[in-house]
Design a binder for these strands. Structure first.
Length: 469
RNA sequence: GGCCCGUUCGUCUAUCGGUUAGGACACCAGGUUUUCAACCUGGGAAGAGGGGUUCGACUCCCCUACGGGCUGCCA
């Protein structure tokens, strides 16, 4: 293949962008970006009854969230209908296509008898070789003249050479009786006109490739490289449906998975680069190759997604994380962070991001900075607060007035007080945690003190120590 | 029905004729520890079944089973 690489993602706007489509887009994006090529977007909206602007927007939003930026404006396939018709008529004029006047009923009858006689049900039009002067004045479709013998070999980068006998190919319709193009024509023409060099798509299109190749051959166009990737299946191994993980990508965004983690997981699902599991976009782009894509369908595994997401959150810069968190809040209809909260959160981020797999988890761990006094301890935390521990907290408060506010000093002060009561630091951490956060699972107590500062720490300890007395 | 594709631990996968079949997630046990997360150590866990080819098959060929796709004037 010479010249720059051009890939495309071509979804139908008939619903949300599901996870399988997202992965197809990702593979196209990775391949294009890794080869300094272009990644185009085409909306296959020729089915006017099922296509909606909302679905188109959902697809655009989903791609944007995932960070799969496309080059140039999205192409509307519907708007290119005149060009598709032009190609059909060109083929007609060249004698490579013909007008077929068979009615739907005739075709149906043909298929029924063919099936009854255990013959091929592929329709064989009686109009293929009828000269134009014998054509009736009736509605017609334009059919391509499929090759009568031989075979078609799809040189697929993922599936290998797939051979299909040409008698499996019928004279498919190019232009409907209302003059609109069918999908197969539209795809071939658009891919050619857009200069697509690599067609990377779901393997549900593998057989279709042979049909589209007929059009390329009839037009004398050079073929693109094909790569048909296996679909994603549900946890039960069945085709993905709404029942399992076939959620729109917006759902994953709402569940709080970071886009980088999604990209990493999706890329790893069905594609591999040795033992590498956790990688950056730059690495994925550099490593990605069509031949390394697996040939069998993969199942979606939330556990592994979470694991990867956790590692990506931990590896993301604080500022970027805060920004993403803001988008997550907006997306889920939650109030945005005020300046004070954002400030505290960015101070706390270092001890938060290593313990969260998702944004909701991150927010949950951040409860200690988001809450305002007086804290109401949860039941599980309240049990740590008794007369003895309150006494220790009061004592600690005294020392904290003058302590240097550093990790080492705070640790020393807390340890010293615990020891003076014949306890270990760990035993003081419980009540301290209850006082500082009002709950039992939090970042390290020392980190919490460092983040909220001396005044707030002392105030919270005083609150807790005075309760119930 | 016809045609096409697929099948390695529970899951994602490595292996491209010779390995004690490796890694990751998950799980179990132990350790570290200030709760959670993380981390460290160890453990169980796989070539769908049957025939070939070969000195030797997860790997190549055939059959079967199972799963998926296409077979439209849907995309």
């Amino acid at each position: 293949m010479t010249g720059p690489v051009v890939t495309r993602f071509a979804p139908s706007p008939t619903g949300y962008l599901h996870i399988g489509g997202a992965r197809t887009a990702l593979f196209n994006w990775l391949f294009a970006r890794g080869h300094a090529g272009k990644f185009l977007l085409r909306i296959e909206d020729t089915d006017r009854a099922r296509s909606t602007p909302e679905a188109t927007q959902a697809i655009l939003d989903g791609l944007k969230w995932l960070g799969l930026d496309h080059d140039g404006a999205a192409v509307s396939q519907f708007e290119r209908a005149p060009r598709h018709a032009e190609v059909a008529h060109h083929l007609l004029a060249e004698g490579k296509a013909y007008k077929c006047f068979a009615t739907q009923d005739e075709i149906e009858t043909f298929r029924e008898t063919a099936r009854a006689e255990a013959r091929s049900t592929l329709f064989q039009s009686p109009w293929r070789d009828v000269p134009p002067d014998q054509h009736p004045d009736a509605p017609y479709v334009i059919r391509i003249k499929a090759p009568r013998g031989g075979e078609t070999v799809i040189a697929d980068r993922v599936q290998g050479n797939v051979t299909i006998r040409n008698d499996q190919l019928d004279d498919m319709v190019l232009l409907r009786s209302d003059g609109t193009p069918v999908y197969m024509l539209a795809v071939a023409v658009d891919d050619h006109d857009m200069g697509v060099t690599h067609v990377i798509r779901g393997d549900d299109h593998l057989n279709n490739a042979a049909r589209q190749m007929m059009i390329y051959a009839a037009m004398g166009w050079p073929l693109p490289v094909y790569a048909h990737i296996p679909l994603i299946h549900g946890p039960d191994g069945k085709k993905l449906s709404k029942r399992h993980g076939a959620l729109g990508v917006d759902e994953y965004q709402r569940m709080g998975y970071p886009a980088a983690g999604m990209r990493n997981y999706l890329a790893r699902l069905g594609w591999s680069h040795g033992d590498d599991e956790f990688f950056t976009d730059a690495q994925a782009q550099a490593w990605f190759e069509l031949e390394a894509i697996g040939r069998s369908p993969a199942r979606f595994d939330f556990k592994k997604l979470e694991n990867l997401c956790g590692r990506h959150i931990a590896a993301t810069e604080d500022a970027a994380l805060l920004h993403e968190l803001g988008e997550f809040l907006a997306r889920t209809g939650q109030p945005p962070l005020d300046d004070c909260q954002a400030d505290l959160l960015s101070k706390a981020m270092y001890c938060l991001k290593e313990r969260a797999k998702t944004f909701p988890e991150l927010i949950d761990k951040a409860a200690f900075v988001m809450k305002v006094r007086p804290l109401v301890p949860e039941a599980a935390a309240a049990v740590y607060l008794n007369d003895v521990s309150r006494g220790m907290l009061r004592e600690l408060t005294l020392h904290l007035q003058s302590a240097r506010w550093t990790r080492d000093d705070l640790e020393a002060v807390a340890s010293q007080i615990a020891e003076s009561h014949g306890m270990k630091f760990g035993q003081l951490a419980g009540p301290l945690r209850a006082a500082l956060a009002g709950r039992t699972t939090t970042p390290s107590v020392i980190d919490m003190m460092l983040v909220i500062g001396r005044d707030e720490t002392i105030a919270r300890l005083t609150d807790a120590a005075s309760e119930g007395t």
